[in-house]
Design a binder for these strands. Structure first.
Length: 879
RNA sequence: AGGUGGUUAGCUCAGUGGUUUAGAGCAUUUGUUUUACAAACAAAAGGUCACUAGUUCAAAUCUAGUACCACCUACCA
């Protein structure tokens, strides 16, 4: 690897070096995992992004967290297998292609299926490449040899195998049911892909007369265009208003067809007129009522919609027109006929397709279903074995979902996807792996003796999620061969990282499938991230396109900068993404770059014994502080508190290392301290590496690698320090810095910056020496010397100050008091009030009786100190 | 309608039953071009911690209720 260092560079040139560094990692096969029984395996699965477009902030957050786990486990000596992949995303991709073709002015009807499929294939190849490059460019340390695509041969085979098994067990079946119909994509979609939005709608009240027009009944509906599909009128069993009408028949306006009045408890008396029309082919509830009364009343099922959302030929002169246009014109007609009563605005939900954002229609249709309830029985057992982060947040939700779960509609009327392996001959069907086997089966099963007969494969493809729910097993080829070495070694996944929005789509289904198929959990842990949202609180997603291109962000902020930016928010909850986050990330990387520049520049002065003592203290402090923080860091990561862990490192590096440590040793560097500094710096790079892999690798190569054959940082050991640290040293150092800050704050710095003395009591000398480093005070403040005195100093010449428990004096002439008097007055008032409160507390008998002793003592101390402080302030006020 | 989470500085968010004035980043204001870093450093200003009640010697923190916001689930002719 050729990495060069130019001292003139103002920042880390990520555009140039990130690629070189990743190539090098790849060349040395650091991320490729082979079975090694002496090493524990860690299996991580990258949730496959859809090939519909490039990656966005949500993905990057997700994958960064996964990559942190991967890199850290690798550095801890585990055999990490981080499996990347992409999803064919059947419906999403197909819609995307259709849109693109439409924009080009190409009509889909005029393209043959073959050609269409070729276009999609080309697209999928292109975007597979793009996505992989993007994953590499953000630093994902994946095992590329194990890369999968959900339309690969092997995966396809697995999907088919699973389908056949479930079909044979009677879990997959074909039936006429009400499904969600997307009129744009012309396919069914699953319940999870439907988004309900509450919107204002008109509720129409319409009169239906009896034959002789003597009586009428008023139904209420939001969809008057469906009257062509009416088969009955329904009221609640207990609704007394309609008692008179029992057993009567009514006539549908416009089409003049007779329909009966029926009863059902599902009808809500209070809503609308309490009387509804039944159109069983286009409403789930109506369908249920229809089924119950079908035989008794001889009801018919009438489908009135074409696949594109226009009315079909059963709708008289309205046929061929869009359902919403018909709604308007039919109301006009009803008004003319005198059947229209009134309309009312109500708030009601419209069902939208998540994929195409069009209003979906409920429609009766012959589809394939999966009896998920049948295989979900033992799920509690498996869910209890899996740990979810954040803990317990989703438990209730999960069980509720399982309770209400309906059969899963798995067939889609699309081209792009796994074709359902069912074959037809006349009205007979078989399920088989391929055409040849299917033909043989027909011959056997149905005793067909003809040599030449044509069979047809089912046109529909499977829902995308049908191929996703088997992933944990299928990526290790565990479906085709459930006793292979890889599968036995790597299964199950250690931790799954994913957005909380696909809990039902994917996460739960994987648990259900693995539990059913091999009686095992698919993963040990699940880490849910929040969802990235834009300023308007919309999900950042491919379909909305509300995000900037990744390459733009990478060019501007670098991969490490992006990673830092996204780690700067608490990712357990949804968050609003703002590009300023990336700026913060970039700035941090810049800081790191400059620290390297500084270390490269250091020149050692030969004779420097002046500040040996100071150096010793600094080293002692930082050494202990590092151990303390690294210990804490490891605890955070073990608890999967990623956000906290990074915040810790961020502050450790920027504040403690750069602002304090490096500033303190400046101009005072000898061989020993340089050696120590490089050691600390290496430790910092190591703990930073999982978070920001590129820049740390670069610096490590520049600063520490002497031979080509030396290891890169990515395979070094992650520091876990078992040494104990000394708390009192850390505290003493902190105390001292606070003391110095206080000295600066009381504002007695002379303009000529002449040094002056600080006076302390003899009796407090020990306390001072125990808790404060004098040497640091000399270094960082204008104090010339700390002098020890026996008696109180003359008020006229000296001013008395207090910091925590420390009392000290300063000569008045050393103070330039430019605090204005008003401010001091406000302070005095504040402390007087504060003092009053404490005195009151200390007079409270209950407090003295019940509060712990140390708290009481603390209050007493406070009282003392505030009194003194007030004294000082008042003195200052006079000044 | 039910569930979950939230309400803390102008913005985005940390935070803990008692530590003299509740923290960070960004934004704002002021100062500093001093040899690692102006994408920096130093500092200032900015908060009745949503509201009400309760528990407690002590509540921003625990409990309950209210209001508002977000998400999820269900109903809707």
């Amino acid at each position: 690897m050729r990495l060069k260092y130019y001292k003139k560079n103002k920042n880390y040139n990520f555009n140039k070096y990130d690629k070189i560094i990743y190539k090098n990692w790849n060349l040395k096969k650091y991320f490729f995992s082979k079975i090694n029984k002496n090493k524990k395996s860690i299996n991580l699965l990258l949730p496959p992004p859809n090939i519909t477009g490039d990656l966005h902030i949500g993905h990057i957050l997700n994958f960064t967290i996964l990559d942190i786990f991967a890199r850290r486990y690798r550095m801890l000596g585990y055999n990490v297998c981080f499996i990347p992949g992409t999803d064919h995303a059947s419906i999403a991709t197909e819609i995307k292609i259709i849109k693109i073709l439409k924009n080009k002015g190409i009509k889909i009807n005029k393209i043959s299926k073959n050609k269409f499929n070729k276009i999609i294939l080309k697209w999928s190849k292109k975007y597979n490449k793009i996505i992989i490059n993007q994953l590499k460019s953000i630093g994902c340390s994946c095992d590329w040899k194990k890369k999968y695509f959900t339309m690969d041969k092997n995966h396809y085979k697995s999907v088919i195998k699973v389908f056949i098994k479930l079909y044979k067990e009677g879990i997959i079946y074909k039936d006429n049911k009400i499904v969600n119909w997307d009129i744009y994509a012309k396919t069914t979609i699953s319940e999870e892909e439907v988004i309900y939005k509450n919107e204002k709608k008109d509720l129409y009240y319409i009169k239906y007369y009896t034959k002789n027009k003597k009586n009428n009944i008023v139904i209420s509906t939001t969809r008057p265009e469906t009257i062509f599909g009416d088969t009955a009128i329904c009221v609640n069993n207990r609704d007394k208003r309609y008692k008179l009408f029992r057993n009567k028949k009514f006539i549908i306006p416009i089409i003049n067809r007779k329909i009966p009045l029926i009863k059902n408890t599902l009808v809500n008396k209070k809503f609308g007129s309490g009387c509804i029309k039944i159109t069983p082919a286009h409403s789930e509830k109506d369908y249920i009522i229809f089924k119950k009364n079908k035989e008794k009343y001889n009801l018919k099922l009438i489908n009135i919609l074409n696949d594109d959302g226009t009315l079909n030929n059963k709708c008289m002169n309205f046929s061929g027109k869009d359902r919403f246009l018909v709604r308007k014109s039919i109301i006009k007609t009803l008004k003319k006929l005198g059947n229209f009563v009134k309309k009312k605005k109500i708030l009601s939900k419209n069902a939208y397709s998540e994929r195409t954002n069009t209003i979906i229609e409920k429609k009766i249709s012959l589809q394939w279903f999966l009896k998920i309830k049948k295989i979900v029985k033992n799920i509690k057992k498996y869910i209890n074995k899996i740990i979810f982060y954040p803990k317990n947040k989703y438990n209730n939700l999960i069980y509720k979902w399982i309770k209400n779960i309906k059969d899963w509609n798995i067939s889609r009327q699309l081209n792009w996807g796994h074709k359902i392996p069912v074959y037809y001959y006349k009205n007979k069907e078989v399920v088989a792996n391929n055409y040849k086997i299917a033909k043989k089966l027909f011959k056997k099963k149905y005793n067909i003796k003809k040599k030449d007969f044509k069979i047809k494969q089912e046109n529909n493809v499977l829902d995308t999620w049908f191929s996703s729910w088997i992933l944990p097993i299928s990526v290790l080829n565990g479906i085709n061969n459930n006793n292979n070495k890889n599968f036995n070694y790597y299964y199950p996944i250690k931790i799954l990282v994913t957005g909380n929005d696909i809990l039902f789509f994917w996460v739960l289904r994987m648990i259900i499938f693995s539990g059913y198929y091999i009686n095992k959990i698919p993963f040990k842990k699940v880490y849910f991230t929040g969802i990235a949202r834009d300023i308007n609180n919309n999900k950042i997603s491919k379909s909305l396109g509300n995000y900037k291109n990744l390459y733009y962000l990478l060019k501007k902020y670098g991969a490490d900068g992006l990673r830092v930016g996204l780690l700067s928010i608490n990712n357990e909850y949804d968050f609003i993404y703002n590009e300023k986050l990336c700026e913060k990330g970039r700035n941090f990387i810049n800081k790191i770059w400059n620290s390297l520049k500084y270390l490269k520049k250091i020149k050692i002065k030969k004779k420097n014994n002046k500040n040996k003592k100071l150096n010793k203290i600094i080293i002692k402090w930082f050494n202990n502080y590092l151990i303390y923080k690294i210990n804490k860091l490891n605890i955070y990561i073990k608890e999967y508190k990623i956000y906290k862990s990074f915040l810790l490192i961020y502050n450790l590096f920027k504040e403690k290392f750069c602002s304090i440590y490096l500033e303190l040793i400046k101009n005072n560097i000898n061989k020993i301290i340089l050696k120590k500094t490089l050691k600390y710096y290496k430790l910092l790079l190591l703990i930073l590496h999982p978070y920001i892999p590129f820049v740390t690798e670069y610096i490590y190569n520049i600063l520490y690698k002497k031979n080509k054959n030396n290891k890169d940082i990515t395979v070094l050991k992650f520091p876990i320090i078992k040494k104990k640290y000394k708390k009192n040293i850390i505290k003493k150092f902190k105390n001292t810095l606070e003391f110095i800050k206080y000295l600066k704050k009381i504002n007695f710095i002379k303009k000529n910056k002449k040094r002056f003395n600080l006076y302390i009591y003899k009796k407090e000398e020990l306390l001072y020496k125990k808790k404060i480093y004098f040497i640091l005070i000399y270094k960082l403040s204008l104090i010339k010397k700390i002098k020890i005195i026996n008696k109180k100093k003359n008020k006229k010449k000296y001013l008395f100050y207090i910091f925590k428990n420390f009392n000290f004096f300063i000569k008045k002439k050393n103070i330039i008091n430019n605090l204005n008097k008003k401010k001091i007055y406000i302070k005095i008032k504040f402390y007087e009030n504060y003092l009053y409160k404490i005195i009151k507390k200390l007079k409270n008998k209950k407090f003295l009786l019940l509060a712990p002793k140390n708290i009481i003592n603390l209050e007493k101390k406070k009282k003392k100190n505030i009194k003194k402080l007030l004294f000082t302030l008042k003195n200052n006020y006079k000044l």
